[in-house]
């Protein structure tokens, strides 16, 4: 016999189901008066530092059909590359920027959309800079465990080329599945859950 580790097992994930809006964005599905606002709707205010951008995208299933009942959440650092989190030990993030947003994919056009700021660079574990990116998490009916990926930016080609995570992608043509295309101040990244254009999802 030996000592025991006394580790617990993580609670298993289950699908968010078709009625996820009731719990996460009740005002969006016309349950009004319980919460003032849906959480994560507003990421910036007048004082938030940094370049204002719109980040949006759609989610397609394996038949190239729009997924209109998903919820997307994003998490990102401020314009100086600091996270508004107690575990951020490198400095204090912009108090006018939470860094977290939540948006359902639109029931008609399928878009999730965030009004946010361009994130600064943060370091990889070994100190190398990672290219500016936003963490994206997707849940929906039919998805048994939330899908993690990242949104990188098409106007950061130089930084993307040496990004430690993007460099880990073996099939190089798949790198672009994580790079949002810039059009003015709007960055668009479509997510493909499966098929030839399947997004690179992360076990991280």
């Amino acid at each position: 016999m030996m000592q025991e580790l006394h580790r617990l097992k993580e609670t298993p994930s289950q699908t968010a189901g078709p009625y996820v809006h009731i719990g996460l964005t009740p005002n969006y599905c016309d349950i009004r008066g319980v919460y003032d606002d849906d959480l994560g709707t507003t990421m910036v205010n007048d004082q938030t530092l940094g370049e204002r951008i719109t980040v949006r995208g759609r989610i397609f299933d394996g038949a190239d059909t729009l997924v209109r009942d998903a919820i997307a959440e994003i998490w990102q650092p401020d314009s100086a590359g600091l996270y508004n989190s107690p575990s951020e030990m490198r400095g204090t993030a912009d108090p006018n920027f939470t860094g977290w947003g939540r948006c359902p994919t639109n029931a008609e056009n399928g878009y999730f959309q965030f009004e946010t700021i361009k994130p600064g660079k943060v370091p990889f574990k070994d100190g190398r800079p990672m290219a500016p990116h936003i963490t994206l998490w997707i849940v929906a009916r039919g998805i048994n465990i939330g899908l993690h990926t990242r949104i990188y930016f098409s106007d950061e080609a130089e930084a993307n080329a040496i990004d430690p995570l993007l460099l880990r992608i073996e099939h190089r043509q798949r790198v672009e599945t994580m790079v949002a295309q810039k059009d003015g101040s709007i960055y668009t990244l479509d997510i493909h859950l499966q098929g030839p254009k399947e997004t690179v999802f992360l076990d991280i």
Partner: peptide, 27 residues
């Protein structure tokens, strides 16, 4: 669970140890 058929990624996930982007989170 039929809806999972067309909504399930088929490629291997890219596995790596978490960075500060995943170690941190909103409060």
């Amino acid at each position: 669970y039929k809806t999972s058929i067309l909504r399930s990624p088929q490629r291997a996930l890219l596995s790596l140890d978490g960075t500060i982007s995943e170690i941190t989170g909103p409060v």
